[in-house]
């Protein structure tokens, strides 16, 4: 066991973990933050996407120990003061989800993509979301949601 410490959604956390503990296991099992999903566990689907020091990463493809000292943000950390983040609100408004399984990862990726591309074209949104797979929506309303959120976020 090794001690790992990081900041998750603004709160300092620390725990003893086995070195082969994945960041997603640490988030879901140690911290009980189960909004971050495991869809494939093979680095393909992006359902496990969280931000590490502001960048979107697949938390099933990173060790908890690699996040030592990092700022981690999960879907639970997006809403502020009881208000949905503009990206969450846009997904709700534009019917950007059906079963909702891919949604936490989609939203975390989308927030990162709008940060890097404040005024994204439809094409940019589609290529930047290549690492996130949705089995329900056909992506159309996801793209619409991201576009609308980008406008609301002042892009």
């Amino acid at each position: 066991m090794t001690t790992v410490s990081m900041t998750v959604n603004g709160k300092k956390v620390s725990a003893d973990v086995a070195p082969n503990t994945l960041l997603v296991q640490f988030i879901r099992e140690n911290l009980r933050l189960t909004g971050t999903h495991v869809g494939c566990d093979t680095s393909q689907c992006g359902a496990c996407t969280v931000h590490v020091n502001g960048d979107s990463v697949k938390s099933c493809t990173m060790l908890a120990l690699q996040a030592e000292g990092a700022e981690v943000k999960t879907i639970e950390g997006l809403a502020a003061n009881g208000e949905l983040h503009p990206m969450q609100a846009a997904f709700k408004e534009n019917h950007g989800l059906q079963c909702g399984f891919c949604t936490p990862g989609m939203i975390m990726s989308a927030v990162d993509l709008v940060k890097r591309n404040p005024n994204p074209s439809e094409e940019t949104i589609r290529t930047e979301l290549e690492g996130n797979i949705c089995r329900c929506t056909g992506y159309h309303n996801i793209v619409k949601s991201v576009k609308s959120a980008a406008e609301n976020m002042g892009g």
Partner: peptide
């Protein structure tokens, strides 16, 4: 290369 998350790591 790959996708945004892969390129970030």
């Amino acid at each position: 290369i790959g996708d945004a998350q892969v390129r970030n790591r």
